[in-house]
């Protein structure tokens, strides 16, 4: 395991570069993101351990980071002042090359379009998701959610399809290919707390109260599968072809789950990071109805684990995580799986 200290700044998000196998971006904030500055780190894995290639100070806390899919040196952050900033790490100055300011409250997540690569999306506590083109100062589209939206993600399989989860316990899916109408391209709105789909007909179901959803991710191999998680500590998987209720419920985290990420290598593998200070690896059983279960747990963080991401390159299983203990850990998931 490799470690890097983001001294004075508590980690909020970590993202591997889609272009370089040794580059990681970390969004971190002073004073636990409550008040004060943020800092963006561009880290490089070198034979001498993890080195900070660049670090950019920001006025307000940073909550999320993503790499451009179009330009190998571009990194986008979302910030507590509602702004999105684009940095070019190949250039010398410590200023962003573009700023996108429309959100009226904390911008909590950003996601680059994985299929067309020309646009990105952001979500905010102001109750909206916005779509942007990096070459334009104004957003292309605003999609209302009407509640704190903690996470937005593009579908990696279908151009123009994106999703968000909100504090109202719903998963929303938009399809921008649909004609503009009063529904604002909203094609699906799935209650995350609904009873599991597999319960069978006529059987009495346990029910779950609504709870804030904090994170979600699209499966990289099965184009209709989404994982969600949040305050109720349960990671759920949904098939958007069957939106009645979750397919699987993965339980084990002791506190709210802050981040889930599907493996880029295996269709059933999932990483999560939680306020219980662990990162866990799970299988949802795959398409063939295998057993959904926890496969392992990484407990190196000594404070809330807030971000986790898979490395896209090399041998499958490398991941990076960050947390409020000011630590970025790079580790091999396989070494933490139960034998």
């Amino acid at each position: 395991m490799l470690e890097f200290r983001t001294r004075g700044y508590q980690g909020y998000a970590v993202k591997y570069s889609p272009f370089f196998d040794n580059r990681i971006a970390v969004a971190a904030s002073a004073n636990y993101g409550l008040v004060g500055n943020g800092r963006l780190y561009i880290l490089e894995l070198t034979p001498q351990g993890i080195q900070a290639l660049k670090s950019y100070p920001t006025q307000d806390a940073l909550y999320d980071v993503t790499h451009s899919e179009a330009h190998s040196f571009h990194v986008l952050t979302s910030s507590g002042d509602g702004s999105l900033r684009l940095y070019d790490s190949s250039l010398a100055p410590e200023f962003p090359i573009a700023t996108f300011q429309e959100h009226s409250r904390e911008a909590f997540s950003c996601s680059w379009n994985l299929t067309s690569k020309a646009t990105f999306a952001s979500s905010s506590w102001d109750g909206s998701v916005k779509i942007w083109n990096p070459e334009r100062q104004q957003s292309l589209l605003t999609l209302p959610t009407h509640s704190c939206t903690y996470s937005t993600q593009w579908n990696p399989h279908t151009d123009g399809m994106l999703s968000a989860v909100c504090s109202d316990s719903h998963l929303r899916v938009w399809d921008l290919r649909t004609p503009a109408s009063a529904s604002n391209h909203l094609t699906m709105q799935i209650p995350i707390h609904s009873a599991p789909f597999s319960g069978g007909v006529g059987k009495l179901q346990p029910t779950f109260p609504p709870s804030e959803a904090l994170t979600h991710d699209w499966n990289k191999y099965r184009s209709t599968i989404v994982a969600t998680a949040g305050v109720d500590r349960i990671i759920r998987t949904f098939d958007i072809r069957q939106p009645k209720g979750p397919l699987q419920m993965l339980q084990g985290h002791g506190y709210a789950v802050r981040k889930v990420a599907w493996s880029p290598h295996l269709p059933d593998l999932l990483l999560s990071a939680s306020y219980d200070m662990t990162c866990r690896v799970w299988t949802d059983g795959g398409d063939h109805g295998g057993q959904a279960r926890e496969l392992g747990s990484m407990g190196r963080h000594t404070e809330f684990a807030t971000g986790v991401d898979w490395c896209l390159f090399g041998s499958e299983g490398w991941a990076a995580s960050c947390g409020w203990d000011e630590r970025v850990c790079v580790w091999d998931v396989r070494s933490f799986m139960h034998q």
Partner: peptide
């Protein structure tokens, strides 16, 4: 943005879990 709103949001993630 007022820090207390952020703190409330964060506390919400934890208190509901605890309760």
């Amino acid at each position: 943005m007022p820090a207390h709103q952020r703190l409330d949001a964060l506390a919400g993630h934890l208190t509901s879990a605890a309760s």
